[in-house]
Lab assay of single mutants.
Amino acid sequence: MAAAAAAGAGPEMVRGQVFDVGPRYTNLSYIGEGAYGMVCSAYDNVNKVRVAIKKISPFEHQTYCQRTLREIKILLRFRHENIIGINDIIRAPTIEQMKDVYIVQDLMETDLYKLLKTQHLSNDHICYFLYQILRGLKYIHSANVLHRDLKPSNLLLNTTCDLKICDFGLARVADPDHDHTGFLTEYVATRWYRAPEIMLNSKGYTKSIDIWSVGCILAEMLSNRPIFPGKHYLDQLNHILGILGSPSQEDLNCIINLKARNYLLSLPHKNKVPWNRLFPNADSKALDLLDKMLTFNPHKRIEVEQALAHPYLEQYYDPSDEPIAEAPFKFDMELDDLPKEKLKELIFEETARFQPGYRS
């Protein structure tokens, strides 16, 4: 834990890192770190609560700039109880001085990944967590956004079992017609939660990839272990087919990539493993919904509104309290091709509203 900075004593240090967030945020305490930044909790002297502050230093890398800009653009436009918001952003007053960006968010005690390492969940908890994931996802999908990296560590939890989806750095506007060349190379989302079509096709992607990830998360809540822990690309596919069985001819016809289709045709026939054999203690309604989410063919996979209306979630289902976005989200430009200098300018502009004396 960093010592509390005395008023006016300059930035606090946390594990050798400068955290320049005073005077409003003090009493910093280390939480963890990701690929390009550290997260601390801090005391907000204005709202009198502890908050989470993520320090991001992305400006050396085009990919990190892209992810940072995506996350900020999306989260500043989203407003939903099951999606983490941005409360404040701290950065230098000029673009030349801006080396880091500090993002202030609600402090959540833990995440689903940490929880599943230590606790076996009751059916009631599984049901409530799944409902909140789908409630947040309904809003995301209504904005025409794909999260693309749903996994237990991106689901934040607090002691009252509130759940918030975080990390929109890989999110995209849904565009089933656009052929994202190089899709697989830039697709760094965790393999275990990846839909089979991501490994088999490169053309376009749809909201059904997020539903697949939610199915993987439900299976993990039922058993405290990942359902498809593939060691590499082909191993991942083999794990999936080992449980779902061989795809039907109709399902194979959806695979545009001939090499991928021929690979699947070359494999020995596998039978589907019954879900109640894998999860003998699970609620039968939970397994019915799991089956509809972990469907090989993305066109037959359940959609988020149908999933919310499934009998497993009937005690929570309330369409009048499951809000959607006001308007579909649009990125003005494809960020993939922009140089990091341009992305830095866009991050600077996007964060201006939090600067003292800002006038829109």
Rank of each mutant, 00 (worst) to 15 (best):
L107W: 11
K138H: 12
T160P: 06
Y131N: 00
Y312H: 09
L121M: 00
R359A: 07
N158Y: 02
N27D: 07
E314C: 15
T206K: 03
K114N: 00
K48P: 11
I198L: 04
L150G: 05
E197D: 00
I133D: 03
R91C: 07
F228L: 00
P323N: 15
C161V: 10
D177C: 12
N158H: 06
S208G: 13
I324M: 10
H310L: 00
Y233P: 03
E71Y: 13
R70P: 08
N238Y: 01
S142Q: 11
D106N: 03
L112P: 02
Q315M: 15
C65V: 09
I103S: 05
L241W: 05
L107M: 03
N27P: 10
I83H: 08
L112N: 11
I198P: 08
D321F: 13
D235Q: 03
K207N: 05
A92E: 15
T206M: 02
N45D: 08
G22V: 00
V145H: 06
L130E: 03
R135N: 15
N47S: 04
L121C: 08
R135F: 14
H180L: 00
I227N: 02
A52H: 10
C40R: 11
A35K: 02
H80I: 11
T94Q: 11
L267T: 10
L308G: 05
N201D: 08
A7I: 12
N297D: 08
P176F: 07
R225C: 03
R277L: 06
T94F: 09
S41M: 08
V46W: 07
A171W: 06
R79T: 13
D124K: 11
D288N: 01
P93R: 10
L116V: 13
K55C: 07
F19V: 01
V304S: 11
T118L: 09
Y128K: 09
N123H: 10
Q66E: 03
N276Q: 08
Y317C: 02
Q17S: 13
L76N: 15
G245I: 07
R191K: 02
R225I: 12
N158E: 05
L156G: 01
Y64N: 00
R91Y: 14
N87W: 15
L241Q: 15
M333S: 11
N281F: 11
T63N: 11
T185Y: 04
G245H: 03
A52F: 04
L222K: 07
A286S: 02
W275V: 09
E60A: 02
L258Q: 00
D291I: 07
N47M: 06
I53Y: 10
P311G: 13
S57V: 09
I103L: 10
A327K: 13
L28T: 10
C166P: 02
H147S: 04
H178Y: 06
K114E: 04
R172D: 04
D321I: 14
R15E: 09
M199R: 05
Y193G: 01
G16D: 10
Y139L: 05
Q236T: 05
T351Y: 15
R225S: 00
L264N: 06
S29C: 01
E303Q: 15
P356I: 15
T295R: 09
I133E: 06
I243R: 11
L157A: 06
E71H: 10
C65A: 08
E220V: 01
A92V: 07
Y25F: 00
D283I: 06
L289N: 05
R277E: 09
T94D: 14
I211F: 00
D288W: 10
Q355R: 07
K55P: 03
I211W: 01
L346A: 09
I198Y: 06
D167V: 00
M333R: 06
Q97T: 12
Y102Q: 08
R194S: 00
I243H: 08
L116W: 10
Y205S: 01
L222Y: 07
R277Q: 10
L265P: 04
M221V: 07
R67I: 14
P319D: 10
A7E: 13
C254P: 06
P339E: 04
I72M: 04
D20F: 08
E96W: 14
I198V: 03
N238H: 01
A327C: 14
G16H: 09
H269I: 13
D162P: 13
T26K: 12
K48S: 10
D111T: 05
Y25W: 11
P229W: 05
L278F: 10
C127T: 13
I126S: 05
H125F: 05
N262G: 10
K203D: 05
L267G: 09
F228G: 08
K203Y: 05
F59I: 00
R191Y: 05
Y312L: 04
R359C: 15
L289C: 06
Y113C: 05
S246T: 14
V14L: 03
I84E: 05
M98F: 08
R148F: 02
D111F: 08
P176V: 06
L294C: 05
E12N: 10
H180C: 06
P196W: 02
G85P: 13
H141F: 11
V101C: 08
L267S: 08
P311Q: 14
P11G: 07
R261A: 07
E350L: 15
L200T: 09
P152E: 01
G182M: 09
Y25P: 03
V21D: 08
H141L: 00
G215M: 03
I74L: 07
R353P: 12
Q97M: 13
D336I: 14
L237V: 14
K342Y: 10
H61V: 04
F279C: 09
L343E: 04
K117Y: 12
L234R: 09
G32Q: 07
S360I: 07
C40E: 12
A7L: 04
T206W: 06
L338Y: 12
S246M: 13
I302C: 12
I31E: 15
L137S: 04
N144M: 09
C166F: 01
P152I: 10
N82G: 10
H310T: 10
N297C: 07
G32T: 10
S208F: 07
Q66G: 08
A327N: 15
Y102M: 08
S213G: 08
K344S: 10
S202A: 05
N238T: 02
K344R: 01
A219Y: 02
D210V: 00
K231L: 11
L130M: 01
M221Q: 06
L156E: 02
D149G: 03
I324K: 13
G182F: 05
I217S: 03
H178R: 02
D251S: 12
N158V: 07
S41V: 13
A42I: 07
P319S: 05
I56D: 04
E334L: 14
Y36W: 12
W275I: 06
N123R: 09
M293C: 12
Y358V: 10
T63E: 04
T351R: 14
L252C: 09
Q355E: 08
K55R: 04
F331R: 15
Y312A: 12
L267V: 11
M199Q: 12
I31S: 12
L107A: 09
I103P: 10
P356V: 15
H239Q: 00
E197M: 03
S142T: 03
R135C: 02
L294P: 04
R194L: 02
K203G: 07
R15D: 09
P323Y: 14
D318L: 10
H180D: 03
E220C: 03
T160C: 06
G22I: 12
R359S: 00
R15L: 05
P319M: 06
P328A: 07
C161I: 08
L115E: 09
C166R: 01
N158Q: 08
M13D: 06
D88Y: 00
L237R: 05
Y30T: 13
Y263L: 02
R194Y: 02
M38I: 00
L222H: 11
Q306R: 05
S320D: 09
L112I: 11
T185L: 04
V46N: 15
N201E: 06
R79N: 14
L264P: 01
D100H: 14
S153E: 11
H120R: 04
Y43E: 13
L338D: 12
G169N: 15
H178S: 05
Y36N: 00
S320R: 13
K73F: 05
R91V: 12
D111N: 01
A2V: 15
R359N: 15
W275P: 03
N27F: 13
H180A: 06
I56Q: 10
I255V: 11
M98Q: 14
R194A: 04
A282R: 06
Y233K: 02
P93E: 12
G230K: 11
M13G: 01
M293G: 05
Q105W: 10
N297F: 07
L313T: 08
R70W: 08
E250N: 15
D149K: 03
R191M: 04
H125Q: 01
L335R: 11
I53M: 02
D175K: 07
P274F: 15
